[in-house]
């Protein structure tokens, strides 16, 4: 059975695509055959983050419309053996997505022996976002530690509970995971930012990880390399932990406590 994971948030700019790229890469690194689908039709980004934008020939909408088959549209990732990217169409809009079409694509991926399908949701609560979560088995709710992001995450959780297939058919509910991103322990310490505990208390779903705010993320996306591949960076370590927890391994939370920089560090730089 292919497990369908939706990465969603309601709000834009919180790190959905970064997270989709890193988590799908992380699962592939663990040996699982993984596909990552960009549902942001009309505003596609995932291909850039994955560094495969120049290899896009066919896209999700072509497959939905039967103009290309999945084998033609799936792009093999350049970093991981088991990872394939299905890009969104840039020239269409989200109305081109149909429930039947998406279901067909997911069924076919299952036939092709995929273990995980990661759906990168667009922002908002409209068609694209609903299509991305309709067939989800698990959901990673990406939230920044600020009130508007928390509110939007809450909203999308409600939609997940009412519009996902699992909810409509009365099956076991979609498994929800909270991922707090762009976390700055110092700002939390200074009282400028919600703590991850605050966020979790407001949303009341299990925490799967905290990703620290870092300039490395911008650098990684400019290079077209998913952040999880940045050797020895906090962000990569945090994402590897998230993947491990997703696979039911026990990992303590890291990068959540603020450590005062020592004298040497203050004198000789470092951030």
């Amino acid at each position: 059975m292919a497990r369908v994971i939706v990465v969603t948030s309601g709000k834009g700019g919180v790190g959905k695509t970064t997270t989709s790229a890193s988590i799908s890469s992380g699962l592939a690194l663990r040996g699982f055959k993984t596909a990552v689908i960009d549902f942001d039709v009309g505003l596609r980004n995932l291909d850039l983050i994955m560094g495969c934008e120049r290899r896009v020939v066919y896209d999700l909408i072509n497959v939905v419309n039967g103009e290309a088959n999945l084998h033609q549209a799936l792009i093999k990732d350049k970093h991981c053996e088991n990872l394939f990217v299905l890009p969104a169409s840039q020239t269409r809009d989200k109305d081109a997505l149909t429930e039947e079409g998406v279901e067909k694509v997911l069924k076919e991926l299952e036939h092709m022996g995929f273990d995980y399908v990661v759906c990168d949701s667009p922002a908002g609560i409209e068609r694209g976002a609903v299509m991305a979560l309709t067939f989800a088995d698990e959901a990673i709710i990406v939230t920044n530690p600020e009130v508007s992001s928390v509110r939007d995450s809450d909203r999308i959780l409600g939609i997940l509970q009412s519009k996902s297939r699992r909810a409509i058919e009365g099956r076991e509910a979609v498994k929800e995971h909270l991922l707090v991103t762009r976390y700055a322990p110092k700002r939390v310490e200074d009282g400028e930012m919600l703590s991850y505990k605050d966020v979790q208390e407001l949303l009341r779903i299990p925490l799967i990880g905290v990703i620290p705010e870092s300039d490395d993320v911008l650098q990684a996306s400019n290079q077209g390399t998913p952040a999880i591949h940045l050797k020895d960076s906090d962000v990569a370590t945090a994402y590897l932990d998230v993947v491990a927890r997703f696979l039911d391994e026990d990992r303590p939370l890291r990068f959540v406590a603020y450590e005062k920089p020592g004298l040497l560090k203050r004198l000789f730089g470092g951030k």
């Binding site: 609560i125 509110r151 809450d154 909203r155 409600g158 939609i159 009412s162 009341r204």
Partner: peptide, 22 residues
């Protein structure tokens, strides 16, 4: 969740897991 609405027509309403703003 935010944006959800429940109406207990003609009777009482019991929430076992609380409600969010909105």
């Amino acid at each position: 969740r935010s944006g959800q609405q429940v109406y207990a027509k003609g009777g009482d309403l019991v929430l076992l897991a609380g409600m969010s703003p909105g």
